[in-house]
Design a binder for these strands. Structure first.
Length: 586
RNA sequence: CGGGAUGUGGCGCAGUUUGGUUAGCGCGCAGCGUUCGGGACGCUGAGGCCCCGGGUUCAAAUCCCGGCAUCCCGACCA
């Protein structure tokens, strides 16, 4: 593609609304343009990248035995009412009405449609298993779209759905997808981890999230440096061997409960400092609502409560941490001075580390007062013991007790064992050998394709611009010609044209900067646009019979002899000399 | 859902406080000339419903009211 005819305008100025590098660079490089909040147009360069990711996904899905379909984006709301997800999604779903005022939504995902589709066609164990996938635009009316493509309202997603006769079959389908995902993200050049994810309201089902490691990610995940344990912080646990569980009782803690005056000190840090104690010596009591009543969650003062863990601990009841409104509605509850023995609490949940036989400093259930030497059993009770603390770096791994590490990631994919929820709700049953009916056992598997593009830029860029991995780059080679105005100008152009033809003849996709622009502009754009290999031909090089080669990512440079290496050799040799895609994608 | 801001040629902004001729600047765009290996320079030029709708006024980008859009912050560890 000649740049003189490419639909492209690069920007020298950063767009004001870009908070993260991927957003900034994709806009500056002319890959995307915002049309509305969280809605983007994909211009030629961006579109090519998107298609390449899509193609990789398609190849791996097909290789794993999944079959491509195209499901509707506009879906009848009635289907979502049947599964109960209409209410579950609420305002997060884009909604519309047709002229007859029938409700529709723009698909955020497609379990309902695919389940009814399979139910309509298949009804025998002989038909299963089957795995259907699509690559299609999805919609979520995010409260707050941000970070460009990372949290958009319209995004391209691959979603696959497997249907099996039983849980064993589901396990096989799941593993095939899990392995395919590893291949996809590896081919895309991402540094990623697969981690155990939050199962959500369904409960007990296996699922993994694929996290591209990135500081701008919106998810924290935990991984072990010694074994293969890895989990979203929402579900991460630590070993019961934690030293805090076996704290020695200081002699003084046999002392009776003592009330101390702690004026204007509603926080852990202030109380600890005031009393000369460590935060870990305090017992933190967090108020939560459990089906309209008051519950207390107990963790050591230096830890935070994991809300998801709390929710799991009280299942099937629903738990939610108190908000300012809740406190306002219960003025007797002394926020900041709550102790574990508060009379109004119907349920006390505690992390095992609270079991340590020691005296605690905690709230006195009276404003401006705390108490010390408070002991479990003697001074307060616990109704439910459950892992409650949010994992932090250094906590012991639940598998091997090795040190855990916490990192941020961008969730680029998720695989989920759904079970029979949708099959039952939407009537996807099959008949077995004996004529008995059973619900199909489902799995669902998503990849955020447009989000992968952003995640790749987050990982592969520098101060000059994007450095696309070869497998995703819009073009394999960026050819820059610098004809100058000297006597050789025409010959430089002619030679570059010939080189352009030769490269394309060798099967390479070439972006040819044939514009009448100054060298600085061309070099700056080449670095911004980020093709993996840059070739520069100028009058000086032509005089010496060479073309310069630069590897975008590493900055490595060398020279290729025009006659021997480039213009007169065969396609295979030319590809090798240029070192483009096949030397990179592996 | 609360709080804060911003809307002015394609992009980035000034002008608004204190209303007053033809609304400016940088980048980009077009033409001519110079330049030609890391975002060159000169001259000339095109391009603006100043977000939308009301209102005040002799006069509104500017003041008032109401919308819309966009961006940021907060969602909570007691």
């Amino acid at each position: 593609m000649r740049m003189t005819s490419l639909f492209l305008r690069t920007l020298r100025d950063d767009p004001t609304d870009a908070e993260v590098e991927s957003h900034r660079l994709l806009v500056r490089a002319g890959c995307i343009r915002k049309v509305a909040s969280g809605v983007y147009s994909w211009l030629p360069l961006g579109s090519r990248v998107l298609r390449r990711v899509e193609q990789i996904v398609r190849e791996e899905m097909d290789a794993a035995g999944a079959q491509e379909v195209i499901l509707p984006i506009a879906q009848p709301l009635e289907l979502w009412e049947r599964s109960g997800r209409d209410a579950a999604y609420g305002p997060l779903m884009f909604r519309l009405q047709d002229r007859k005022e029938t409700g529709f939504c723009l698909s955020p995902t497609a379990e309902e449609v695919v389940t009814t589709t399979v139910a309509a066609e298949y009804s025998s164990y002989r038909d299963l298993p089957v795995n259907l996938y699509q690559v299609n635009w999805k919609y979520r009316d995010e409260l707050r779209p941000r970070f460009g493509l990372l949290r958009a309202r319209e995004f391209l997603m691959k979603d696959a759905y497997s249907f099996d006769v039983d849980v064993e079959g589901l396990g096989v389908s799941y593993q095939e997808m899990y392995d395919a995902y590893h291949r996809v993200f590896t081919r895309c050049g991402l540094t990623f981890r697969s981690v155990e994810g939050e199962a959500g309201e369904i409960g007990g089902d296996v699922n993994h999230e694929f996290m591209a490691v990135a500081a701008v990610g919106e998810d924290d995940f935990v991984w072990c440096k010694q074994c293969d344990y890895a989990a979203n912080v929402e579900v991460a646990r630590r070993s019961a061997e934690h030293p805090a569980h076996h704290a020695v009782v200081p002699a003084a803690d046999a002392a009776p409960v003592e009330k101390v005056h702690t004026p204007q000190l509603p926080g852990i840090a202030g109380v600890a400092e005031h009393l000369g104690a460590a935060a870990s010596e305090l017992l933190k009591c967090i108020a939560f609502d459990v089906d309209g009543e008051l519950g207390l969650a107990l963790v050591p003062g230096d830890r935070e409560v994991n809300e998801f863990a709390l929710a799991r601990a009280v299942t099937p009841r629903k738990a939610r941490l108190y908000t300012d409104d809740d406190f306002a509605a219960r003025p007797a509850l002394p926020k900041g001075y709550i102790g574990p023995g508060y009379e109004g609490a119907v349920l006390v949940v505690a992390d095992p580390s609270v079991r340590a036989p020691r005296g605690w400093i905690t709230g006195a259930n009276e404003v401006d007062h705390h108490v010390r030497h408070v002991r479990l059993d003697r001074d307060f009770r616990v109704d439910v013991w459950a892992d409650l603390v949010t994992i932090v770096s250094g906590d012991p791994c639940p598998n091997c007790s090795g040190p855990l590490s916490v990192d941020r990631g961008i969730e680029v994919g998720q695989v989920f064992q759904l079970g029979t929820k949708y099959a039952r709700a939407l009537g996807a049953f099959y008949t077995d050998e004996r004529g008995d009916q059973h619900p199909m056992v489902m799995g669902c598997y998503g990849i955020g394709i447009s989000r992968v593009v952003a995640a790749v830029v987050e990982e592969h860029h520098d101060e000059h611009g994007i450095a696309w991995p070869a497998a995703l780059a819009p073009f394999d080679v960026h050819l820059v010609v610098l004809p100058g105005k000297g006597d050789a100008a025409d010959e430089v152009r002619r030679t570059a044209d010939a080189l352009y033809d030769a490269l394309r003849g060798a099967g390479l996709e070439v972006l040819y900067d044939d514009r009448d622009a100054s060298p600085g502009v061309k070099f700056a754009d080449a670095d911004l646009l980020g093709m993996p290999v840059q070739l520069t031909l100028g009058a000086k090089g032509l005089a010496r019979g060479i073309v310069e080669r630069k590897v975008r990512a590493s900055g490595e440079r060398n020279e290729l002899a025009l006659t021997d290496d480039v213009l007169t050799v065969g396609p295979g040799e030319l590809r090798a000399a240029v070192g483009a895609r096949d030397a990179w994608s592996g």
